[in-house]
Write a protein that binds this DNA or RNA. Structure first.
Lengths: 339, 339
DNA sequence: ACAGGGACGTTATACGTAACACTTCGGGTC
DNA sequence: GACCCGAAGTGTTACGTATAACGTCCCTGT
């Protein structure tokens, strides 16, 4: 009857219910107690349902001055890890009436320098995960409330940070390996300039240096199975005494290491122990199952979102790193178990 | 100086540049040719940069009546597949000035019945992937332009559909296995009520039925490594002649099948051939590498987004299924190769 | 009888932007 | 000299919502 091509507005609902637009807003916004009678409120709700009314979010956001939407910047979506972070963040966001927009930052999408141009949504805040420091200053330019995930607390320019206790995870790996008797270790490191990987290298070196007679060699590889395969193969065919264990910066690298070892005719864990970090589905898919460090990605996302909510409400975000847990499976054993 | 707590508006820029707000809108909106002098335009741009002006998206959206934002509904984020779909969709979206908001639909996030309540963003359209039919009608209720991914074209209530040619992938798998001489096949099916899995079952049954003397048994499992392990073990220890090949609905199920086979002391591919579907990173991480069907998730997302753009512009979306490709690796061999 | 106050609404306004309609002004045309 | 025209802007409005401020009416206590 009316111009039905366009979606109904609160005024249309008001007309249908025979009240003013303000009354509709009151009723639908649940602020009508003592201001509108029960019967009128019922009429309004009925009319709204009848017309299939949905409030125009753009108008609401403009009026309210906020959007209840935050941006989650992640380096990539090639592992379940960041999917988990997103899921966790989105869950607590939803509980608080927030939405989460995802921005996978590396090349691949749009003009990567500017997350905000590509995220059309108007934003109330930003959660940035595993960001390089230079990109951070670009983001800081916008005055949006910011929470950093998996980033150097010292270099975050005053933004709140939430971290997994990766350093402790590495300590647990090192202790496990040292306890088994390993002394020569190959560190298969992710060839990515990120604080989170620096921590792994530093902590591993420190742990091993504390025990006399240990030796750590480093190989670098891009985070892919093929990259890890090549780097591991190269490192293990190099001259010198062969390591007895490979510590990988993450599970995907470990999967590549497995393949290199198979190709070299070395058996896991008899000839070589291998550890990962992440505990992806991958870790239990490969044979033998991978000894790795379980990171609770969803909890990480949850904590990140909670921290951002705290910042938005002017509260102090909850501190403290998220504990991680070594999961010992079949890929580690005392050195020389085959002999 | 001014109330600096609030973000600068186009009016602030106008004041700074000594022009009207309308002129700012013209210049920054790139619609000033022949309406504003080059020098004035420069002054405006300068002032905008100076103040760090960012247009208020909520206001723009309200004025324009659209948001250049679409919702992508996916069943989960537990595999890279949907991450790929998102990446592809987001890429072409960005090329056209659109943003993509993600909504992983299953339990886990918010009041699952209503994607739109949880997606705070105002939306121009929806891409829904692998949706159950009943949820579809709920979505259809909102009159938003809709594109269905991986869904029954006949049951999509007139919405545009974009599909991978899964049926052809299954045909390729069947032909490959039949060509190797397999006649007794176990179908490890995903225990999920979704059209995409019905297609696999139907097509596989049809292909095998076309060859006399073939036999197909079906086991159902939730899409997880453990679930697949249990279902496969149960199916293979059941009485009757043992199958010589396991056709899995996806790679994750195949990884579970591998574990079951190891536990039963059966070797892949000598005692049992295995095939997957997806070609995730998992497929090359396990040993032997998995013969599977490669699905181009990013292309899928791209095509979905392109179709939605077409719908939004009143054009006819490009038809035709996306071709898929059998990738033969080490997990398939003639039956009885060990004997 | 009359002030006072709920109960039940309505009117008016502002949020920041884009676009339409209008004005001003200098120069070219007949 | 009257007329028009394009360049270069400006004034104003509307988008749909939420809320502050403002009216009624009627009831109730003293």
């Amino acid at each position: 009857m009316s111009r039905s091509s366009t979606r109904p507005t609160s005024r249309d609902v008001a007309r249908a219910a025979g009240v003013s637009q303000a009354a509709v807003s009151l009723v639908l916004g649940d602020k009508w107690r003592g201001r509108v009678s029960e019967t009128t409120a019922g009429r309004v709700r009925e009319a709204a349902r009848e017309l299939g009314y949905r409030p125009n979010l753009a108008a609401r956001n403009l009026r309210l001055g906020h959007t209840r939407t935050v941006l989650l910047v992640v380096p990539a979506l090639t592992t379940e890890f960041f999917a988990g972070v997103y899921t966790g963040a989105a869950r607590v966001a939803a509980e608080h009436g927030f939405g989460v927009v995802l921005y996978p930052s590396p090349e691949g999408i749009g003009p990567a320098r500017d997350p905000f141009a590509s995220a059309q949504a108007a934003l109330d805040g930003v959660i940035a995960s595993s960001m390089a420091a230079d990109a951070l200053t670009a983001i800081r330019g916008d005055q949006l409330p910011l929470v950093m995930l998996d980033s150097d607390p010292a270099g975050s320019l005053g933004a709140a940070t939430v971290n997994l206790d990766i350093a402790d995870g590495v300590r647990q790996v090192a202790a496990h390996l040292l306890g088994l008797g390993h002394r020569r270790v190959l560190h298969l490191a992710a060839d990515v300039p990120s604080w989170t990987f620096e921590v792994r290298a530093r902590e591993l070196a420190a742990c091993l240096a504390a025990v006399p007679g240990t030796e750590v060699r480093t190989a670098r590889a891009p985070i892919s199975i093929e990259g890890a395969l090549a780097a591991t193969e190269a490192a293990l065919t190099a001259p010198g005494p062969r390591p007895t264990a490979v510590v990988c910066d993450d599970d995907k690298l470990a999967a590549g290491a497995y393949k290199a070892l198979r190709r070299l005719g070395l058996r896991v864990p008899d000839d070589m122990s291998v550890t990962g970090l992440d505990d992806l589905a991958l870790a239990t898919a490969i044979d033998p199952e991978l000894t790795t460090v379980r990171l609770d990605a969803e909890l990480f996302g949850e904590r990140g979102m909670r921290a951002l909510l705290a910042v938005l409400e002017g509260r102090e975000p909850e501190g403290g790193d998220i504990p991680v847990e070594l999961v010992v499976r079949g890929s580690t054993a005392p050195p020389g178990a085959s002999a």
